[in-house]
Amino acid sequence: MSPSSSYRQLADVYDHLMADAPYDQWMQFAAEVWRLTGTAPHRVAELGCGTGSLTRYLLERKLEVWGVDLSADMLEVAREKVERSHPGAPVHWLNQDIRRLSLPGQMDSIVSFCDTLNYIPDAEGIRQVFAGVFEALKPGGTFLFDVHTPYKIAEVFGNESFCYQDEQVAYIWQSSYDEYTETVEHDLTLFVAERDGLFRRFHELHRQRAYRLDDLRDWLVEAGFTLLSLTADFSSQAVEEESERAFFAAQKP
Rank of each mutant, 00 (worst) to 15 (best):
L198W: 06
H186L: 15
Q128F: 00
A170Y: 05
V133T: 11
I153Y: 01
A136H: 03
L188M: 15
A193P: 04
Y151I: 12
Y177F: 14
R207E: 11
T189W: 00
T189P: 02
R207L: 08
Y180V: 15
L205I: 06
E160D: 07
V192Q: 11
S175Q: 05
E194W: 00
D115E: 03
T181K: 15
R207G: 00
F134I: 10
E124N: 08
E160Q: 11
K152G: 01
E204I: 03
A131C: 10
H206D: 01
D166A: 10
F134R: 12
E194M: 06
G158T: 04
L144E: 06
E124T: 13
G197Q: 06
V156E: 13
G158L: 01
E194L: 11
A131L: 09
G140C: 06
P139M: 01
W173G: 10
H206Y: 04
E167S: 15
A170Q: 06
G140V: 04
I153M: 03
L144C: 09
E179G: 08
E160W: 00
Y171K: 12
S176I: 09
F134A: 13
Q128V: 00
K138E: 06
L188K: 06
H206N: 02
T183G: 12
V133S: 09
Q165S: 15
F157A: 09
P139F: 00
D166H: 09
Q128D: 10
